[in-house]
Design a protein around this nucleic acid. Structure first.
Lengths: 140, 140
DNA sequence: CAGCATCCTGTCCGATACTG
DNA sequence: CAGTATCGGACAGGATGCTG
């Protein structure tokens, strides 16, 4: 029996506060909800694929991200111990972001997800067209 | 050179429309943005871990999801060919959701992400407290 | 350059009521 | 049971201007 099944079936009454992403109020769910978003995952993937990067490099790397969301997401990742922020006291200032061991672990799980999406995008788009054709609109 | 590096450096001028999740307007980015959300990932994980499930089972399984978001996310997954929706014409009606091969592929990449989060949640929470302690509030 | 503060718009998403 | 429809508040997130 897997972890989630144990937790979800409640088969372990004395379970000493197991972490369960499926449980609404579990801390791990909170963490999952924060990581499972577009920008955070793309940032992790970018740092993993291209190594340490400056703020502006990241913004160019992750297409379409605004300074605001980039700052916000980076701050979250830094706060959770996934990303290291290093300031070089120069003028103009230079700030470099890099993965910490925890973040590198996660990034290595996330990268395959990105590659999979790139490989299967065409197939999913085809499925969509087929679906949309079969469900003109106001059906169901 | 990896796919994303090729695409992002523009080193392949004649690149025949490679898919790149980092590119804002690439179809694969659109797909990625749709999949990379809390509810979709949790649904995939639930279907992967517990097998085919009815609507209400899924709602109980994925803690905190509303009928609306569950319907919406399931519809997206179905539309993209990841999930199969089967209606049994009974009374009361019974609808079962299951992974299609495409969805099963993805789910197997997503599951480790969930498990990792459960394993590392405590560590990330600790990092947060430390961060918050070091940055009382209006610093920086 | 690397942000923060502000404003503003779109959308997310829950609550509620209704249908087959 | 498994949805759909509608409303409304909260918040995500882009644009802009300013600072160290």
């Amino acid at each position: 029996m897997t972890t989630e099944e144990t937790a979800r079936t409640g088969a372990e009454p004395q379970a000493e506060q197991e972490h369960d992403v499926f449980a609404q109020l579990c801390p791990s769910r909170e963490m999952f909800a924060e990581l499972a978003d577009k920008w955070s995952l793309l940032i992790l993937m970018s740092l993993s694929a291209c190594g340490p990067q400056r703020f502006s490099e990241l913004q160019r790397g992750v297409g379409g991200v605004s300074r605001k969301m980039l700052t916000q997401s980076l701050r979250n990742l830094e706060r959770s111990g996934l990303v290291l922020r290093t300031v070089f006291p120069e003028t103009p200032p230079r700030v470099v972001y890099d993965l910490r061991p925890l973040g590198r672990e996660l990034a290595e799980l996330v990268a395959p997800l990105g590659h999979w999406t790139e490989r299967r995008a065409r197939q999913m788009l085809a499925a969509r067209e087929e679906f949309d054709a079969a469900h003109p609109e106001g059906s169901r």
